[in-house]
């Protein structure tokens, strides 16, 4: 029995369940907790794909950082919702139809794209972090610097937006 495959199906199912629960919960705090479930499942899939650096970043940045940020804002904003869903029946029906269309398009596209011969060689596996560092700091040096600038801009923007009006 291939335990990798079993774990993969387990994590995939967990991610989907977490997503569905997230969009159906009334309380935003519950949504955030289910979002953590999805993020952790995706992190598990990263491990199975041999992407250990991405696993670490996923857990630290998403499950650790972004969700905590969401929870803080939920507690600051403290909303009680009268209605959970937006718009009327027409809006919901149109949303459902559009999403089904979108899913159909994606599924056919992914079904058609032929990926290369699945080889039995070890996955990116060992030395993954080293490979990532080399790629990041040699081939993608400029994007890396631009992204650091983006983070600075986002930080300043968040501070300016969150500052109380004088």
């Amino acid at each position: 029995m291939d335990w990798g495959l079993v774990l993969f199906y387990f994590f995939a199912a967990l991610a989907v369940v977490g997503g569905v629960m997230m969009i159906t919960r009334k309380n935003a705090v519950h949504s955030a907790v289910y979002l953590v479930l999805t993020f952790v499942s995706v992190a598990g899939i990263y491990i199975l794909l041999g992407a250990d650096f991405l696993f670490a970043v996923q857990v630290l940045v998403y499950a650790g950082g972004i969700v905590v940020l969401f929870l803080f804002v939920i507690m600051l904003v403290n909303l009680e919702e009268s209605r959970r869903l937006s718009g009327g029946k027409l809006h919901l029906a149109a949303s459902a139809v559009l999403t089904c269309l979108l899913f159909g398009m994606l599924a056919t596209l992914f079904g058609r794209v032929a990926v290369g011969q699945p080889s039995v060689a070890a996955p990116l596996g060992e030395g993954n972090l080293q490979l990532m560092g080399i790629a990041l700091f040699r081939d993608y040096m400029l994007p890396f610097e631009v992204v650091s600038l983006l983070l600075l801009v986002a930080m300043i923007g968040a501070i300016v937006l969150g500052r109380p009006r004088a």
């Binding site: 991610a15 989907v16 997503g19 569905v20 997230m22 969009i23 999805t38 949303s95 459902a96 559009l98 999403t99 089904c100 979108l102 899913f103 994606l106 599924a107 992914f110």
Partner: peptide, 9 residues
Amino acid sequence: AVLFSIGAV
């Protein structure tokens, strides 16, 4: 694709 559709809806 399923996760993306859930997010979209």
